[in-house]
Amino acid sequence: MKVKLRVTVMKKPGVLDPEGKAIGRALAHLGFAGVEEVRAGKVIELDLDAESEAAAEAAAREMAERLLANGVIERFRIERLAA
């Protein structure tokens, strides 16, 4: 079956995110008030052909652990998208 998954990769808490900080400063320059913190990450969408949704999610998890995210500095979450 075809399964669409979205892997979101974000920096771990405590890891400096200068990109997020720069976006936050730019938002302040535009006059947006109350922006306390901005964090930037990556979104990777996968179209998989798998036996089941569970198998597709397990495969995506392994992909994230081995390549898509760097466990030293990042964490990830996987969500199913409507096909």
Partner: peptide, 17 residues
């Protein structure tokens, strides 16, 4: 080398961007 796990840690974007 850090991405391959042959050395520990990681190289992030320069703090000044």
């Amino acid at each position: 080398l850090t991405e391959a796990g042959l050395l520990p840690g990681a190289l992030l974007r320069n703090a000044t961007l």
